[in-house]
């Protein structure tokens, strides 16, 4: 009975804390809140208000000098649009291939780096993180050159084996896969860093116990490391899924969504609808639908990968 009593006693202050009103908390720590105020103002001005505005706009036909309410018309248009389904299909394919590949490769790379010495670990950590701090515009331009049909690196290599050049970005059959391969081959720097940090926090005693029980290196990795990295994995899967659903820079820099609609993605479609066709209401509706799709995916991933399971 004693442990139960302890738990009950321990819960009391928590309950009291919960009862404490938000306003009391603010009054108590008002200086901290005031320091947070500038950031909060920027967050509200540049994130919250535009998000609410986009939601409101999705029910309007945008006009420069006064928009008109159109109800669910924009949403109906979204679900009747073949361009939207084409873009959704491409984005989905891009996501289901790149997200698992990037997360698993980050896990493997981090696992290989983790046992190394301090200096080697720092070197590889920096090397793999470097592409993350490089602008995607620059990365896309380099890859565009590598994929160039006439003088690109890939066709040069194919030429060494007597193979014909491939129009990597110009054919429907290869364009999207070329972008997917590019995304897969760019190291997932954030993932590697976070996995390394998480691996560093796993208690050595667990590995020692496993060693005493006769587990080999792979078994320890599979049975201890991977399960204890689950919260990090969940975070990275969510992060990279959201990023993949929002893929844009590579598309606009390398293919413009073409040829045909072979590489059209949701965010590129939204961009075109908004800033080429100036249909901001329709673009807002597309954005809200994208938000809902990402939300559903995130909930599914959260339920499948959550730690307490």
């Amino acid at each position: 009975m004693k442990p139960v009593q302890q738990v009950t006693n321990a819960a009391k202050p928590v309950d009291l804390a919960r009862k404490t009103s938000v306003w009391t908390q603010i009054k108590k720590n008002y200086a901290a809140y005031l320091f947070l105020l500038p950031k909060l103002i920027l967050f509200v001005a540049f994130i919250m208000i535009p998000v609410v505005w986009a939601f409101v706009s999705s029910f309007q036909e945008y006009k420069i000098f006064g928009s008109e309410w159109v109800g669910f018309e924009n949403y109906v248009k979204v679900f009747q649009s073949s361009a939207f389904y084409d873009a959704l299909k491409n984005t989905f394919l891009f996501t289901v291939v790149t997200v698992p590949f990037n997360v698993i490769s980050a896990l493997i790379i981090a696992s290989l780096i983790h046992p190394l010495g301090k200096w080697s670990q720092s070197f590889f950590r920096g090397a793999f993180y470097l592409p993350t701090v490089t602008s995607m515009v620059i990365v896309a331009m380099v890859w565009r050159w590598m994929y160039n049909q006439d003088f690109g690196l890939f066709n040069y290599v194919l030429g060494l084996f007597g193979m014909d050049p491939v129009n990597w970005l110009g054919q429907s059959s290869t364009a999207l896969w070329s972008l997917i391969i590019m995304q897969c081959l760019i190291p997932f720097g954030v993932g590697i860093i976070l996995y390394l940090a998480a691996m560093g926090s796993i208690s050595h005693s667990l590995y020692e116990a496993a060693t005493i029980d006769g587990a080999n290196g792979f078994q320890k990795w599979l049975r201890i490391t991977i399960p204890l990295l689950k919260p990090t994995t969940l975070y990275l899967v969510l992060l990279s899924t959201i990023g993949s659903f929002q893929v844009f820079t590579q598309i606009i820099m390398m293919t413009g969504g073409g040829p045909g609609s072979a590489t059209e993605t949701l965010v590129h479609l939204i961009y075109k609808t908004g800033f080429r066709d100036f249909e901001f209401g329709y673009a807002s509706a597309q954005s809200i639908v994208l938000f809902a799709i990402i939300l559903i995916f995130s909930i599914i991933q959260f339920r499948v990968l959550r730690y307490d399971d």
């Binding site: 200086a31 320091f35 105020l37 500038p38």
Partner: peptide, 21 residues
Amino acid sequence: KKMLSLVLAAGLSVGTLAACS
């Protein structure tokens, strides 16, 4: 100390708003 914090934070907020205009 609290007063100083208050003034500083208020100043930062105003500065941020001013930068936006």
